[in-house]
Simulated assay, not measured.
Amino acid sequence: MLSPTALRRWSWTHKWSSLICTLFMLLLCITGLPLIFHHEIGHLLGTEVEAPPMPAGTPRASLDQVLAAARAEYPDRVVQFASQSDEDDALWFVTLTPTPAPTEDFKSIAVDGRTAQVLARRPVDQGFMYVMSRLHVDLFAGLAGKLFLGLMGLLLLVAIVTGVVLYAPFMRKLAFGEVRRTKSPRLKWLDLHNLLGIVTVVWALVVGGTGMINTWADLMIKYWQYDKLSALLAPYAGQPTVPAAERSALQPALDAALAHAPGMKLSFIAFPGTTLSSPHHNTFLLRGNTPLTSRLLQPVLVDARTAQVTAAPQLPWYLTALLVSQPLHFGDYGGMPMKVLWALLDIATIVVLGSGLYLWLRRKAPATAGSNAAQPGSSNTPAASAQGASA
């Protein structure tokens, strides 16, 4: 059992970690709700691109033809990345930018992988889902915004853990789940805050933890490139980026990558000189066929001149953790039932956060008849001043 001094310390930590992160967590929960259903909302708004139906066995165009079709739309740009749709591998998305360097100025072209015909020129910097995504990922502030949200995620985890510690002394005179409806509005909200907080605690830990990991993605990739990839590229030291005119055809390079990792499928391609590749390689990121392995990537580096595989390094544990956490954060593992569950828990967490803010704002409200001071969790107890037992 916690001593009064320990209880005050836990309460102080819970109170301030909650207060500092609450508004930002509310923003993330509100923006995260539509992102759970981003595919379904895209279909509803007509922004989701679909390849037209064709007979089974329709031959595929080569990767070179697909990229040529995309480049024809913006001949003054270079191809940075290309990816196949997770839902339909007949659909390619090609990203073009002014230079291979990292930039926010990019165009996305959807190309039919069978006919090499352009299907759509997707706007990537406008619309409702774009705003929701940028607010959720980085607050329109790039890496600084991501790291700031990561700090808020850490405070959320502190608030959750301290709230769980405070829950037992708070509930010592109440039945589990009891809401004192005959008491003051503040006490009713305090009970509801604690009930929803303890019910959603595991989900909040999972989503808060995975969200915090996701904010470190850029730094993790840069560290991997510095720590592991640089050793693999030692034979190319001092050589400039391979000019486009000296690069081999891409379809043989893709075939070589797939042959090197039988049973895997293409997810993503990064071209020479871009963020996720080297100046000398086409980097093919391959994925497995099961719900779990489809989220894990195997990089295969193929020499841009010779179309020969030169390396296929295993991803380190921290990048594996990142890849696993990304779909878990949005409930992408279990289809629609898991998405609905994630949405319901998200809404419950919004209530927890909102009620915690309400309890803080009403902390100096006068007690109603019957004196709240005699009630566990009243405004005079450390647990109540800490906004209850959850974030």
Results as ranks from 00 to 15, higher is better:
Thr182Ser: 15
Ser184Ile: 04
Pro185Cys: 09
Arg186Val: 11
Arg186Lys: 13
Leu187Gly: 10
Lys188Gln: 15
Lys188Trp: 08
Lys188Thr: 12
Lys188Ala: 12
Lys188Glu: 11
Lys188Val: 13
Trp189Lys: 07
Leu190Ile: 09
Leu190Phe: 15
Leu190Asn: 15
Asp191Val: 13
Asp191Ser: 13
His193Tyr: 02
Leu195Gly: 03
Leu195Ile: 10
Leu196Gln: 01
Leu196Ile: 02
Leu196His: 02
Leu196Lys: 02
Gly197Pro: 11
Gly197Trp: 05
Val201Ile: 12
Val202Phe: 14
Ala204Val: 15
Ala204Gln: 13
Leu205Gly: 10
Gly209Lys: 04
Thr210Pro: 06
Thr210Glu: 01
Met212Gln: 06
Ile213Phe: 00
Asn214Ser: 14
Asn214Lys: 01
Thr215Met: 00
Thr215Asn: 01
Trp216Glu: 02
Trp216Asp: 01
Trp216Asn: 02
Ala217His: 04
Asp218Trp: 08
Leu219Lys: 07
Met220Ser: 09
Trp224Ile: 04
Gln225Ile: 07
Tyr226His: 12
Lys228Gln: 12
Lys228His: 11
Leu229Tyr: 07
Leu229Phe: 07
Ser230Gly: 07
Ser230Lys: 14
Ser230Pro: 09
Ala231Pro: 07
Leu232Gly: 04
Leu232Asp: 11
Ala234Pro: 04
Ala234Ile: 11
Ala234Gly: 08
Pro235Glu: 07
Tyr236Ser: 11
Ala237Gln: 12
Gln239Gly: 07
Thr241Lys: 14
Pro243Ser: 13
Pro243Glu: 13
Pro243Thr: 14
Ala244Leu: 15
Ala244Val: 15
Ala245Phe: 09
Glu246Ala: 15
Arg247Asp: 15
Ser248Arg: 09
Ala249Val: 05
Ala249Gly: 07
Ala249Cys: 05
Ala249Tyr: 08
Leu250His: 09
Leu250Asp: 03
Leu250Ile: 08
Gln251Phe: 08
Pro252Gln: 06
Ala253Asn: 10
Ala253Glu: 10
Leu254Lys: 06
Asp255Met: 04
Asp255Trp: 09
Asp255Pro: 01
Ala256Arg: 04
Ala257Gln: 02
Leu258Tyr: 02
Leu258Val: 05
Ala259Pro: 00
Ala259Gln: 07
Ala259Tyr: 03
His260Lys: 07
His260Arg: 08
His260Trp: 05
His260Gln: 12
Ala261Cys: 09
Ala261Ser: 13
Ala261Arg: 14
Gly263Glu: 06
Lys265Asp: 10
Lys265Leu: 09
Leu266Tyr: 02
Ser267Lys: 06
Phe268Glu: 03
Ile269Asp: 03
Pro272Thr: 14
Gly273Ser: 15
Thr274Glu: 14
Thr274Ser: 15
Thr275Trp: 13
Leu276Gly: 11
Leu276Phe: 15
Ser277Pro: 06
Ser277Glu: 08
Ser278Tyr: 05
Pro279Ser: 10
Pro279Ala: 05
His280Asp: 14
His281Phe: 05
Thr283Met: 11
Thr283Glu: 08
Thr283His: 06
Phe284Met: 03
Leu285Ser: 10
Asn289Ile: 01
Leu292Glu: 00
Thr293Tyr: 01
Ser294Val: 00
Ser294Lys: 00
Arg295Val: 00
Leu296Asp: 01
Leu297Val: 02
Leu297Asn: 01
Gln298Cys: 01
Pro299Lys: 03
Pro299Cys: 02
Pro299Asp: 01
Val300Pro: 06
Leu301Glu: 06
Leu301Trp: 10
Leu301Cys: 04
Asp303Phe: 07
Ala304Pro: 12
Arg305Asn: 11
Arg305Phe: 12
Thr306Tyr: 11
